[in-house]
Computed example of a mutant assay.
Amino acid sequence: MIGLIGILIIFAMVFGGYLAAGGKLGIILKALPFEMMMIGGAAIGAFLISNDMSAIKHTAKDIGKVFKGPKWKPEDYRDLLCLLFELLRLARANPVGIEEHIETPEESSIFSKYKKILADKEAIALICDTMRSASMNYDDPHQVEDILEKRMEASMHHALHSSHALQTMADGLPALGIVAAVLGVIKTMASIDQPPEVLGKMIGGALVGTFLGVFLAYGLVGPFAGRVKAVVEEDGHFYQLIREVLVANLHNHATNICIEVGRQNTPSHYRPTFVDLEVALKEMKQEAA
């Protein structure tokens, strides 16, 4: 919703200000289809050249994040802490019994309680791989933390590719606007024998190219790239929480302490209160009983 409001404000302020100053939209609307064909087409073509099909699909999908916002909500962080608590408690009480849950999480009675988390392959893989390694006695907290950090850095780098691709497009749009404007000037020079009022409209149409390139770069595509990056980084906190809890577990802290470490390392706007988490854990224990 905020993204749509932002776009409306951009168009209202730019074109509203232009009209309030006495400008006329006629010349812009007349030149717009042709300028958009040159600038937009060239930008899309350059985007296709510089990215493979996987990156193109990823970017197209990530544009929706501008309007949807972060995937993980405060209640999801609470559910994640409850899930990890249940898994860690079982792993300590019954090391053999935990194997069926981490080997086939889609069939697990524990994971199935948290459908949204179960649907996220990265989160499930992070939990199961780390707990499987611990069950194989690969439980040096510092080494595991280092491996998890590198794994998460690689995932974040991949997730940010769409933001980088959009920002690269935004960086090129002003130059493509100049290209379209130069072509408009060439067209004008070829009609130099026309009266001033005709030449004036042709020059104005050529300048629409410069305007459009800069407007698209800094008014739309650049902010889209920035928003996608912000949302990806926000969602990254969810996976960092998994790392914090599982590493704390390898330090042999009590299960409650591990969960509290994760809770306190959650960003404040997503962090469940201590009381809310305690209530959720008690309800979970009652259901299990």
Rank of each mutant, 00 (worst) to 15 (best):
I2E: 07
G6V: 05
G6F: 11
F15H: 06
F15N: 10
G23D: 07
I27C: 12
I27Y: 11
I27P: 04
L32T: 14
F34L: 15
F34Q: 14
E35L: 07
M38K: 03
I44R: 05
A60H: 09
A60W: 07
A60P: 10
D62H: 04
K65F: 14
P70C: 10
K71S: 04
W72P: 06
D76G: 08
D76K: 07
Y77A: 03
Y77C: 00
L80S: 00
L81Q: 03
L83G: 00
E86A: 08
L88M: 09
R89S: 15
A91R: 11
N94C: 07
V96G: 07
E99I: 06
H101C: 09
E103W: 09
E103Y: 11
S108C: 10
K113A: 15
Y114M: 11
K115C: 05
I117P: 01
L118W: 02
I124G: 00
A125D: 13
L126A: 06
L126R: 06
I127A: 01
D129C: 12
M131C: 09
N137P: 00
Y138S: 05
D140E: 02
P141L: 03
V144G: 02
V144A: 08
L148K: 00
E149R: 14
K150T: 13
M152R: 12
E153Q: 14
A154F: 00
S155T: 02
M156Y: 01
H158Q: 13
L160G: 04
L160V: 05
H161G: 10
H161A: 15
S162R: 02
A165Q: 02
M169R: 00
M169H: 06
M169D: 03
D171R: 02
L173W: 01
A175H: 02
A175S: 14
A175Y: 12
G177M: 11
G177V: 11
I178D: 04
I186Y: 07
I186F: 09
K187Q: 14
T188Q: 08
S191N: 15
P195T: 08
P196G: 14
V198S: 12
V198C: 13
K201F: 06
G205C: 03
L207S: 08
G209D: 06
L212F: 10
L212E: 09
V214K: 10
G219E: 04
G222E: 03
P223F: 05
P223R: 11
G226Y: 14
K229C: 05
Y239R: 12
Y239V: 08
Q240W: 10
Q240D: 14
R243A: 11
R243N: 04
A248I: 05
N249R: 09
A254V: 12
A254L: 12
C258H: 11
I259Y: 13
R271C: 14
V275I: 14
D276A: 15
E278V: 05
V279R: 00
V279D: 08
V279F: 02
E283G: 05
E283S: 12
Q286Y: 08
E287M: 13
A289E: 13
A289W: 05
